[in-house]
């Protein structure tokens, strides 16, 4: 038979256990970003170009007839160069390297940028062949970000290249 003191002790200890579990299961609350901040996620996954070289007639002559492809395309992919400007100032610049042992995989990047909500001028430039000067893919736009809004910068050649959403 339990003594009254033991019963009270058990009620107190079980109560403390429940209070501890119950409190830390939801509290204290966590705020990842302040109220007036928005988020830009830059996420690009793309295969760089292959730097092909045109074979000379002499080279082709030396090759078996069935293998005389006019272009010599190595397996490796080009690095991808990316620049992001926000409100006219550089925000991020990187050179994405192809993945894989033979450097023939996709080049990827994933970055988060927290910025004040409101109107901003965003400019993104990308080159998927560093052997060629300049940026064949450019996207510039004035964006309006609401508090806590997430905007994504992505790339899809089937959708015209760089895009914001």
């Amino acid at each position: 038979m339990l003594k009254p003191a033991a019963i009270i002790g058990q009620v107190v200890l079980y109560g403390a256990f429940a209070a501890f579990i119950g409190y830390f299961a939801t509290s204290p609350t966590y705020k990842q970003i302040p109220d007036d901040v928005s988020l830009i996620k830059l996420s690009i996954s793309h295969l760089g170009e292959r730097n092909c070289r045109k074979r000379t007639p002499e080279e082709l002559e030396k090759m078996p007839r069935n293998m005389r492809a006019p272009l010599d395309c190595p397996r490796e992919r080009s690095d991808i160069k990316l620049e992001v400007d926000l409100d006219g100032k550089p925000l991020y610049q990187t050179v994405m390297h192809p993945t894989g042992v033979y450097k023939d995989g996709v080049s990827t990047t994933y970055k988060r940028f927290e910025l004040k909500s409101g109107v901003h001028q965003l400019s993104v430039r990308m080159s998927d062949n560093v052997a060629v000067a300049g940026f064949p893919f450019v996207k510039e736009a004035q964006i309006t970000l609401k508090p806590a809004q997430v905007m994504v910068i992505d790339f899809n050649p089937d959708k015209g290249g760089l895009f914001f959403r």
């Binding site: 830390f24 609350t29 966590y30 705020k31 970003i33 988020l39 806590a148 809004q149």
Partner: peptide, 12 residues
């Protein structure tokens, strides 16, 4: 498309 505001996180 939206970041969660205040989260009732399970700290365990």
């Amino acid at each position: 498309a939206q970041l969660p505001a205040e989260l009732r996180i399970d700290w365990f």
